[in-house]
């Protein structure tokens, strides 16, 4: 993985990390969290800290049910041993960390892009319906339509960089935008920008042309 984890400046919020640890995020948000943490040891340490809270809860949970069946568990282990083949091949390439690679058939080359106008392309990923996730391809120097949104939008940079009202975001950086943010991300010159974006509500665009383009975004 081409990653110097110390250069990441924009991180998951503590609330998102705790929700991810507790298993409360929709799949699309979990995908963004898992992909960011694959690149960011700062957030990995935060996550594992919240996991420790989960461990403390598990250790003190009151149990008034029947103890699980030990013999059946051993039988389960024996069956799994017998069925065990070669370990699954690890998916990941230089741009896509493993959790994301497994959503697009293993590598960036397999992504099925659709044009959405202005040179921008996207690919919707298949997740549960509580939130949606997509890959965005923004040519160098191009602006993504100005948009506000309901709910939360997470944007994780995988290649290149973009700039908006909140600063500059490069590989590994995550922008967490809530309803108060109306932003116009512009990709840096020099390299096309690829992002993973997830939202738990439909975007609404403020310009005329983008509104026409919205059906193509399929969200």
């Amino acid at each position: 993985m081409t990653r110097n984890t110390t250069t990441i400046e924009h991180h998951l919020t503590p609330a998102l990390l705790m929700a991810y640890s507790a298993g409360a995020l929709p799949e699309a948000f979990s995908l963004v969290a898992a992909t960011h943490i694959s690149m960011c040891d700062h957030c990995r340490a935060e996550l594992e800290t919240y996991d420790t809270v989960g461990g403390a809860i598990l250790d003190t949970v009151e149990s008034d049910t029947e103890t699980p069946d030990f013999a059946k568990t051993m039988a389960r282990i024996a069956r799994a041993d017998a069925a065990r083949n070669a370990p699954p091949t690890r998916l990941a390439d230089d741009v896509l960390p493993a959790p994301l690679a497994s959503y697009v058939g293993g590598s960036l080359d397999n992504v099925k892009w659709r044009k959405v106008g202005g040179g921008v392309k996207q690919a919707i990923l298949s997740t549960d319906r509580d939130a949606s996730a997509r890959l965005l391809y923004i040519p160098a120097g191009t602006a993504v339509p100005d948009h506000g949104h309901r709910g939360i939008e997470l944007t994780l940079v995988l290649q290149g960089a973009f700039r908006d009202e909140d600063g500059r975001f490069a590989r590994g950086d995550l922008e967490v935008a809530d309803e108060s943010v109306d932003h116009t991300p512009v990709a840096d010159e020099g390299e096309d920008c690829i992002c993973l974006a997830a939202t738990d509500a439909p975007l609404r665009f403020s310009g005329m042309l983008p509104r026409l383009a919205q059906p193509f975004f399929q969200i």
């Binding site: 598990l58 103890t67 699980p68």
Partner: peptide, 11 residues
């Protein structure tokens, strides 16, 4: 198993 299995089930 004796320690954790009942806790996992309760969780």
């Amino acid at each position: 198993f004796d320690h954790f299995a009942p806790r996992v089930k309760a969780y």
